[in-house]
Structure formats: structure tokens, C-alpha cells
Design a protein around this nucleic acid. Sequence first.
RNA 1: GCGCGCAUAGCUCAGUUGGUUAGAGCGUCACAUUGACAUUGUGAAGGUCCGUGGUUCGAGUCCACGUGCGCGCACCA
Length: 858
Amino acid sequence: MEEMAKAYEPQSVEDGIYKKWLDSGYFAPENLPGDRTEPFSIVLPPPNVTGTLHMGHATMLAIEDAMVRFARLRGKKTVWIPGTDHAAIATQSKVEKMIFESEKKTRHDLGREEFLTRVKAFAQDSHDTIVNQSKKMGASLDWSREAYTLDEQRNAAVNVAFKRMYDDGLIYRGYRVVNWDPVGQTTIADDEIVHKEVEATLYTFKYGADFPIAISTTRPETKVGDTAVAVHPTDKRYKKFIGKTFDVDFAGTKLSIAVVADESVDPSFGTGALGVTPAHSTVDAEIAQRHGLPMVQVIGEDARMLPLAGPLLEGKTTKQARDIVATWLREQGLMVSEEKTVQNLSTAERSGGVVEPLPKMQWFVAVNKEFARDGKMVTLKQLMQDAVRSKQIEILPERFDKTYFHWIDNLRDWCISRQIWFGHRIPAWFKGDDVVVGENPGDGWTQDPDTLDTWFSSGLWTFSTLGWPNENAPDMKAFHPTNVLETGYDILFFWVARMVLMSTYLLGEVPFKTVYLHGLVRDEQGRKMSKSLGNIIDPLDMIAKYGADATRLSLVIGSTPGNDMKLSEERIAGFRNFTNKLWNISRFVDMTTGGLRHVETVEATTLADKWILSRLNDVIAKVTAHHETYSLSLAGELLREFTWTDFADWYLEIAKVEKGKDDILNYILERLLILWHPFMPFVTEEIYTKFNRGMLIVAEWPSVGATLVVAHENEFEKLQNAITAIRNIRSEYKVEPKKLVDVVLSNDSLMPYTDVICALARVQNLVVGEKPEASASAIVGDVEVSISLAGLVDVAKVKARMETELASVEKYIAGIRARLDGDFATNAPENIVAGERAKLAEAEARREKLMQGLNAML
RNA sequence: GCGCGCAUAGCUCAGUUGGUUAGAGCGUCACAUUGACAUUGUGAAGGUCCGUGGUUCGAGUCCACGUGCGCGCACCA
């Protein structure tokens, strides 16, 4: 038997253990032992192949792995599917940036094919890093099922989904105002926009001297594209102009401006009149549509003015054009006022470019269009709402329900085409004005050059990873809908909502039953971790320094759904101490019981045994329940409390003086390792090898009630006091506990504590009767030490303590009495009142004892 | 503007459906430490549960209003 090292060294064992798991094949459900019928499945939110994993990913892996390992230990047919996301725009812009920095070339210099080769190489690299990091974390992912949002199978799924939606009229092509990112040279979705506050000037002016209404704008250069002025229908100032059209000469362009009435105009803002630029504002485009106004595009894709903007502005940047128009207005005497204001500028999340709303021919998913489903007319929006409203999907924490509904209520058609190269090519083919969606119809047809929004393929993730579009794929039947989707709350809309859309539409079932939203990992001061702040904690560094188990614990314990978490290296170091504690508990049991071994059942003979075993049962029951409701943090805290305080600090101490506990120590330790395994898989697996019971990853979760014993609360307190007494005697008199053999009780002032002393005697294996004698003694070993307890206790201290206690008991009694005298006794439920009465009786008894003791001391 | 959240010990946070003496970790202080544990133990101090009002026999928990902070969405033309 090899002795365990004094301290646990994660670095020397973790890689070996992971390899052992891989070799066992247990990450794949078909290899799991036993006859498993109940499925448990999670698909990993695929990390973007844009780089490396950060603490957010580590949190995701730690939480999901805990869920998955728990399910596996509970005997479920468990699978956790890994994968990565091609993250279209994010990846393409990153590679573009890198290529430009090193070679000063753009993607157009390289050409589509060469550029895509470069992106693929980069993505492959990132992928390998991510996989390696996930393994370091101990993630029990089924690598045999690994998927990639841009691989062949997923592409097949995308094409089928696209065609089906197109055939149902839910995907359409339309000339609409979209968010154009002039830097990335692509359209982006509404939720890829980031608003930034910037200073701007609000110009108020008239289009021309003869135009009767003044308007306000921060973007006068767009006004060359105006076709109307909108006012509120009830606005008395302008009522007389509604329906009229004015021709004006504006900054070198001839404009024809109609005055229309629209409810959406706020009469109290500015002049109460809104210049309508249908081509360069989504809001204006909607107004224009309502009134049948023409759309004039004056800004191009390069964010420069088009010829239609007139000779004065053509070719100028929007900023230059703005100044030109402002100057022109001042010169013409048309400017009414100029004031500083704060403008919320729309920028592209990825490229940082200032978004320019432009009309473009794009592909859209219609979220408000009705289609037939099970004989009823529904919309995609309704499907998304119903899934959550009907509780088929439960969101944790619940409050995100509201956010979810709020978002869907405001949802507009989803623009899914992107003018970038990296991504799923849109499966649409053109020949003149003809369009075919699906396979290449043959010669003379050209495919749409655009690619799909990355979230289109991500939306299919729960089932594209399970073999869809083959609906008879065995994994589809076995594992869909998945049990949990665990992800950060920041992508509730981007991703979660779109998965609900795709799954309910394409499969008619929800993609998952529970959504567990974890918080963001922040630094000690609550700031986001970022490169520029230099406050990033790298998971790999932490694993190297403190071990994967400690890193995982720090991310799971103390983290509740939906709430951000502050993480510091200190915190991780604290959990490293705990992994070491568990190691040393095992080391102690190993050394003192002659080696770790499986014990099937145990019998509780002493008070301490009954207590610790009843605690264990309680912990098993509660930890199991917490896992089932995904309250991982609570489960972890409970386990830590039990392991450190109850088992290590108390029971192990008792075991040092009270022999014959070898079986119970082994019994509890083995079960403790299983209970801890979901949270700290490495150290538990390593210790478990000493039990010679095969691999812990497929052990059997302990059940409650194997040894159901109940110890009275009071007895537990006595034990604690007894242990304290041993320690005090030991330290004050420098007596080794094993040689303490005689206890003399000779002072009446200790009467209130005779129970405690009695318990102490029991722990010491001293023989005592029902009522403690004034003295008790026994001989252990060959040394006899005689100690009078009266001499050990500072009577003044005891008296003071008793007096304090008496005061608080009096107060407590008064409180209960007051309640019982009031309406409480008649109005509260009987069992509650009875409980109060019992507490009162108990407190009174305690008071009686304390008073007796105090009297004796006088 | 619309919506959501948070406020509990010095710090970070738990606190399940209201049940009556509010908990943990870290930190602080005191004591102990030849130990399975360099990473240990025991104990102590520390709280008007943001404020005000309400519902209730009973409120940290439910309701209303207020204050402070944070987040999401939309946007002002």
C-alpha cells in the first residue's frame, strides 16, 4: 500500500485522469455500463472559433459538466455534445484584420477562394485550442459526436431549413432599409448594433424660403433624400398644410416634399415636424410605406454621397456633406438654430463602423406572417411566445421570462443575408429574374453570393447536432428535446430565442426543457474582464496554478443563475485549499483504517455515529434535490459544510479518540467522493482508485435511507462542546488527549454543564451511568492522569457566560409569551402554535437550569 | 421613453412556498497548533435585512410609493 502524498498535486494527475476517461469511452452514452433508459442530453453552446476560451466559457463548462456528471452518476443515458461556431462576421473580420496587419492586403486582393482558405486555417487553429482547453477543464464531452456549425452535415441542415421556410413563405427577399456596416461591408441584424453616445449638433431649418415648416435633424446631409415632412394629425400649427406638396431647391437638388399626417410624430419634439428620409432611416421607411412615399437613396455602400444627392455633395463622405449642407443653410438664411445635443450613434458590434441605414435587396425571415400549423394559423412570433408561456420551456431565473417576451413583442423581420464570404452560402439560384431555392438547377444559374447570418445555423444547433434533417436519426429519437440549455444571459435573444423559433417551426417541439442562464464573470471590482483593462484571469493559468477542480469550484459555488459573479485569484486559492482538505481527509482515513475500501453497510452504535450518518443521509437527500432543480451552488455549499465542518472537524476528531470507526469512515468517504464528483471530478477520481471499485465517473449515486438514524439536536451540541472541552484541557494543561483518563467533577457550579461533561466522557470511552457521577474515571494505556474539571474552568468566566445566556433566554421567553398572549394563539395554524409552546417549555427548562447553576455559585 | 433587476455583517453573497433568536465564505481580533491538512483548529466581535407606509396573528420574504445603483430594448427626427 502506497502512502498518499501530504498534499494533492493536481498538475501531476489531471492529464492522466482525463486520458483514462477518454480511453474508457464513458463520455459516449452507448458505452455507459448498465441498462440505461432515461436520457439526459445537453448540447454545448459552441464557442466561436475566434480565439481562446475565457472565464465565461470556463463557467459554462464547469456548470454543464456538473449537470452531466450528476446525470451519469444517477444512471441516465447521458450525452453532452461538443462543437464550435464559425461565427461568420466575427471570424471573418478578425482574419481580415490579421491579414491586413501582416500583409497589407484586403480580402478582395486575395479573392474569395484564397481568403476562405485562410479563414479556415485560422478557424481550425482556434478550434484545436478550444478543444484542448475544454479537456483541461475536465469537460466530459462526447468527442465522437463533435460538430461544427459550418461543416457538411450542418450545411445540409441549413439548406433544408432555408428551403422549408422559403416554401412556407416565411423567408422572402425584399428591398428594404437595412443596417449597413460600411466598414465590414455587410448588413447586420438589429441586435448586432451597439449604441454609443456622442456629441452632435441638432440643426433646425427650412428646406427653402417658400417652405412653410421648419424641421430638426442631426444629419442634414440625408435631407437631400427627403420626400415628405410628417406632422401629427392633430397639430394645429400644420393642419392646413397636410396633403400639400412643395417643390424646393435644396443644396443643389430639386426636392418634392409632401406634408403627411402620422401618429408616430411627437408634436412636442423640436418643431413638431419630421423630415422623412425613407431610404436612410428605418423609422422613416415605415412612415413612407404607410403613405406610399417614394424612396430616394442618396448614400452609397461606401458611406459616400451618390449622384442623386446633387453635384454639390456627390462623392463626399457623409461628414463632409453634413458640413456643406449646414454651410449652405446658413448662407441661404434658412438655418433657424443650431444646438449641441447628445446623439445615440449606431455602430456595428464587430467592426465598430458607423451603421448607415440603406435600402437593399435582402433575405428576411418573416416573424409576423401567418402560416398553417396543425390546422391553425400561427406566426413564428407566436410559436416563440407559446413555448415559454405554456411552460414547455422553463427559464432560470424566471424573471428573464419578461425580458424574453418584451424582446419578442418588439421583434421585426429578421434580416438573414450577409455580404461576407465566410458562412453558409444562401441556397438560392438566379437566372435573370427567376429564383430557385434549393439545389443548383443547372447551367446558366448563379448562386446568390451572400452568406447567412451566423445565428441561422446556430438556431438549428440542438437538432442539427443530433442528425437532423434525418428525422429518424437515432440520436434525434433518443435525445431531442434536450434537457437543459445552459448559456450566458447575454445571448438570450441572439441565440436562445432563435433556437426556439427554429425548433418549434421545423420540428414542432421545443429545443430544450430548461434554460439555465449563468451570469457574467467579472473581476473583483465588478468590472468586465477585458484586454484593455488588463484584468483578465485566464482559466488555463488558474488550472496550472491551482488545479482544474479548484477553478471549477470557484465558478460553480456562489454563482446563481442570472447573477454576475465576481472572481478573484484569492477565491480560487481558497477552493484549492478545499481540494487539499478533501485529499487529506482521505489520507487520514487511508492511514488510520489500513487502506481505503468499500463498505456496503454500517451500523451506528455510538451517539457520534448516529449523528454523522444521519447528517450524511440528510446531505445526500438535499444535494440530490438541489441538483434536480439545478441549484448547483446550494448543493456545493451544503457539501462543503458537511465535508469540512461535520466530517473533518468533528467526526474525524472523535474518531481519533473513539476507536472502531474504520468502517464508517470508509463508508462516508466513498459516498462523499461520489457526491463531490460532479464538482471536482479530478481529485475525486484520483482518490477513488484506492477503493478499487472501477471508475468513479460511472459509480452509483448514493441513495438515502441506507442507514437511517436520527440523533437529537441537543446531543449534537453536547458532542461539539465535548470536543471543545478535550481541546481546552489538552491545550491548557499540555496533556495529550490519548492519555487523559480521569475526569473529576467536583463543583456544583458546573451542574448546568453536566450533560456536556457526560458527553465528553462518552467520547473518551469513559464509563458513565445515566446520570453523571461526581467523578468518572477510566484507564487508557499505561499512563494515568488525574484532572479535576473544577480546576480547569474559570468560575468567573462560566458565571458571566451563564448570566449572558440567562438574559437572552429571558428575552426569548418574553418574546414567545407576548406572541402566545396575543392573537397569534387563536389565529395561527395549530402546528405553528404547538411548536411555539414546545419552544417555550424548552426555553423555560433551560432557564431553570441556568438559575440553579447560578444559585449554586453564589 | 419602455422594460427588468439589485440594495442583507468591513468585503462577496445565500436566505426555497411569509413562521417568529437572519446565515456562509473571505477579512479582522484572540487563543491553540510535534496533528491527515506548508493549504490547520477553536472562539469572538461585527446586522435599524435601503427608507416610508400597507396587508397579516406574524414581513428580510408579499403590496404601494420613494431613494440609490446596474442592465436590456428602443430611440430625439
